[in-house]
Amino acid sequence: MLSLGVAMVVGLGLATGVAGAASASVDTGSQAAFAAADFWYLHSTYNSRAQCEAAAQLYLWPNNPGGADDYECRSEGGRWGLWLGFLS
């Protein structure tokens, strides 16, 4: 079931053209949280951290059973990148 959820979320990211590996600027203090999941990918970017955090809720349980296990909103070039994390 988790792999189906991952495929669905990854498919959404690929459809918007923003999925894939990217170098993220790492804020001190968030490094440990960012490393907690086994797999991370950049889903989308937003103009503000609040927009990023609101969007992340759509991809997490209970709003999306089988979806992402964690998320990080990371500052990236003046915008906020929504990184979704999955545990294997």
Rank of each mutant, 00 (worst) to 15 (best):
G11I: 14
G78H: 10
S23I: 02
W80F: 09
L58Q: 15
A32L: 06
A7C: 10
A15K: 10
L84M: 05
A36S: 10
S48R: 04
Q51C: 05
D27R: 12
D69F: 11
W61D: 11
W40P: 06
G20W: 07
R79F: 07
G77F: 12
W61E: 09
L60Q: 11
Q31W: 09
L12R: 12
V6F: 14
L87G: 13
V6N: 04
V9C: 00
G11M: 11
A35D: 12
A54K: 15
A7E: 11
G29P: 07
A33M: 07
A36W: 13
L84N: 00
E72S: 08
S48M: 04
V26A: 03
D70Y: 09
G5W: 08
S88C: 00
T28H: 02
L12G: 05
G17W: 05
A54I: 06
P62E: 07
E53A: 13
C52H: 11
G66L: 03
W40V: 01
G29F: 05
A15C: 06
L84I: 02
G67Q: 06
N63G: 12
M8F: 12
W40Y: 09
N47Y: 14
A15G: 11
G85R: 03
A24I: 08
G20T: 09
R79L: 02
Y46S: 04
R49K: 14
A21H: 10
S25C: 11
A36H: 11
S88D: 07
W83M: 13
L84Q: 01
L58I: 13
G85I: 04
M1R: 08
L2S: 13
A21N: 00
S3P: 03
V9P: 09
S23D: 11
A7W: 00
Y71F: 15
P62A: 05
Y41M: 00
A37V: 02
M8H: 09
L14Y: 10
Q51K: 03
L60M: 13
C73T: 05
A50C: 11
W83F: 15
Q31M: 12
Y71W: 15
A24N: 08
T16C: 13
F34R: 03
Y41C: 02
S23M: 01
Q51N: 09
V18A: 01
E53V: 10
S44Q: 12
D38Q: 10
L84C: 05
Y46W: 01
A33D: 09
D69E: 02
S3R: 12
V26F: 07
L82P: 05
V9S: 05
G17F: 08
W83P: 06
S23Y: 09
L2F: 14
M8R: 08
G81T: 14
A54S: 15
G11E: 04
A19R: 00
A68M: 13
G66V: 02
L84H: 08
A21S: 03
E53P: 10
M1G: 07
A68E: 12
F39P: 00
A15E: 02
S44E: 07
A7Q: 03
W40R: 09
L4M: 06
L84E: 00
A32P: 03
R74S: 13
D27A: 10
G11H: 11
G5N: 01
A50F: 15
G77Q: 01
Y71R: 03
Y59Q: 13
A68C: 00
Y46L: 04
V18G: 01
